[in-house]
Write a protein that binds this DNA or RNA. Structure first.
Lengths: 218, 218
DNA sequence: TAAAATATACCGACCAGTCGGTATTTAGAC
DNA sequence: GTCTAAATACCGACTGGTCGGTATATTTTA
């Protein structure tokens, strides 16, 4: 008799969900299998039936996590048609009320701290970045073809911008008193502008109106 | 007999050193007190005499770590007099042969993953950032007073640049195949230029020589 | 020789994984 | 259809080992 694949899919999703919630809440180091069992509404044995070790479960959970974040980014970006808006479409990362933000940051930092010591995790990270970079590259090339972006190497610039997103995110999330959402968004826009939008485009489009600096604090 | 304060200083340094080395090597989650004892050449009881709990020891170790990194940055920066060079003086962060890089990244990522769930750690992080920002702000103001930087808010820009440093660092360290040191340095320079150096300054200083894009790979 | 410094032995909490068992579902025989 | 055998799904007690912390013993130092 073949296993009940529907049930398996349901259960695994249920377990991964529980794992991600628990990891986000307490941090990898403090999460026990019992915690996840309770969160998933399953017993130890029941969970073991689907994931044979903690490592297995965690790896699957992280994979799912990155998949979700990517889908989220992809979907959000595709709601814009202007290339600059597309590049800036990840600003939801700096919205503390966003449900994905709540759980995403703790999980990401836990993940990275493991990745430092685990090649397999670094590969997952690398794949995720590459997907992200593909999205950004497409938007950058579009902007270049329209003449609104400078003619830099698109992939390299995409990697830079994606890195800047994350750098700003780290400050914004871990030291929020001095790094408000406004600061984050403003920093991102200035950076992207400095990297992609040439002076000529700026003046022609904005009639040389120099943007006022806003010193933002919460 | 009064406690031998000299010895205490020596032993504590010895223990902190051992802790940092061990954390960098194996990651917080996998470090035991025994590991640190062995690395420090002390017994369990000996170590307990100076740090009464693992938490105490780790906190002290991280404090020391950030202190060291800051001193390193401060010293390196002070070897430059040109403001732009000062702002860019942290490029040693992207040199894999640098001894501080070896141990620094693992420790930093471990630290951040704990900070997510620990207010006290976040404060240490925040203080560190503030010190870093002070250094950068000073350089930025210097550049502005000389007319080579745009007249943006110095502290805000310093925070942005420091965030960019770290964002690039994350990619460079965790996904090195696609993020070479050349990419990191190039990304940083472009970003800083885009944020601080006005178009007028660029043309006047460089005779409008548009920089060639270098697509860097390892 | 007394206090400090260090070592050793040990305790108890914790936890991942195991295992025997039970309940439930499915497949095939008739 | 329905009975049976077998596979699957799930449970929870148990185990073996780990590790932080502590109590006590020993050595060093002033």
């Amino acid at each position: 008799m073949p296993p009940n694949t529907d049930l398996e899919v349901i259960r695994k999703a249920q377990i991964i969900d529980a794992a991600l919630r628990t990891i986000a809440e307490r941090g990898c180091a403090d999460v026990t299998m019992d915690d996840i069992c309770k969160a998933a509404g399953l017993s130890k044995g029941g969970l073991a039936h689907y994931y044979k070790s903690k490592n297995d479960l965690f790896k699957a959970a992280f994979q799912e996590f990155f998949q979700r974040i990517f889908v989220r980014g992809d979907e959000t970006m595709s709601t814009f048609s202007d290339p600059l808006e597309q590049v800036l479409s990840f600003e939801w990362l700096y919205n503390i009320d966003d449900p994905d933000v709540d759980t995403g940051y703790p999980i990401l930092y836990d993940f990275m701290s493991i990745a430092v010591h685990d090649q397999e995790y670094r590969e997952i990270f690398s794949d995720w970045i590459n997907n992200w970079v593909k999205l950004l590259s497409k938007a950058i090339r579009l902007g270049q073809s329209r003449g609104s972006f400078e003619n830099v190497d698109a992939e390299s610039a995409a990697r830079t911008i994606s890195a800047i997103y994350q750098g700003i995110a780290t400050r914004w999330y871990l030291a929020p008193e001095k790094h408000s959402s406004e600061w984050a968004v403003d920093s991102l826009r200035r950076s992207v502008r400095g990297l992609l939008v040439s002076y000529e485009n700026t003046v022609s489009k904005e009639r040389r109106k120099k943007p006022k600096i806003v010193n933002v604090r919460k």
